[in-house]
Design a protein around this nucleic acid. Structure first.
Length: 124
DNA sequence: TCACTGACCGAGA
DNA sequence: ATCTCGGCCAGTG
């Protein structure tokens, strides 16, 4: 086999291209997936990374951190860790939003996570 | 360029 | 069920 490195794909998480035009791999694509998650359902950082062919789930975590308070809404509260827990929800804001949608939590852990899980790879 | 951090994840203990 | 580790790789200084 060739000795080429296994760098399969180079992904960049730029909000928008310098020209202002959206590109593949941009943070907007992640936002679009998140907007498809139905209320009361949740998905994971890793699932989104996988369906977009991103190198790892942290990319999605970074994207959620960049969600603007204005503009088209992005329900970031519906994105949780693979173990069904909210990550870095220090103010409890995302937790409250989920509860408002009918999601039952025990601390930062979603009860019956398996049933509420919405997989973008199969349900989108 | 190097070192370290992080809204992650899977495997093991 | 909980914790620790190693791997992942983009930002940051």
């Amino acid at each position: 086999m060739g000795t080429s490195r296994s760098r399969v794909k180079k992904t960049r998480l730029v909000p928008v291209a310098p020209s202002g035009r959206r590109e593949a791999g941009s943070i907007e694509m992640i936002f679009e997936i998140v907007r498809q998650i139905p209320p009361g359902r949740v998905t994971t950082y890793g699932s989104i990374a996988k369906v977009l062919d991103l190198p790892n789930a942290r990319m999605v975590g970074h994207a959620m951190r960049e969600v603007p308070s204005k503009g088209k809404p992005v329900p970031a509260q519906r994105v949780v860790t693979a173990s069904g827990k909210l990550s870095h929800d220090t103010s409890g804001a995302r937790r409250r939003l989920l509860i408002r949608e009918g999601v039952v939590l025990k601390g930062d852990k979603i009860v019956d996570f398996a049933r509420l899980f919405w997989d973008p790879a199969t349900e989108l």
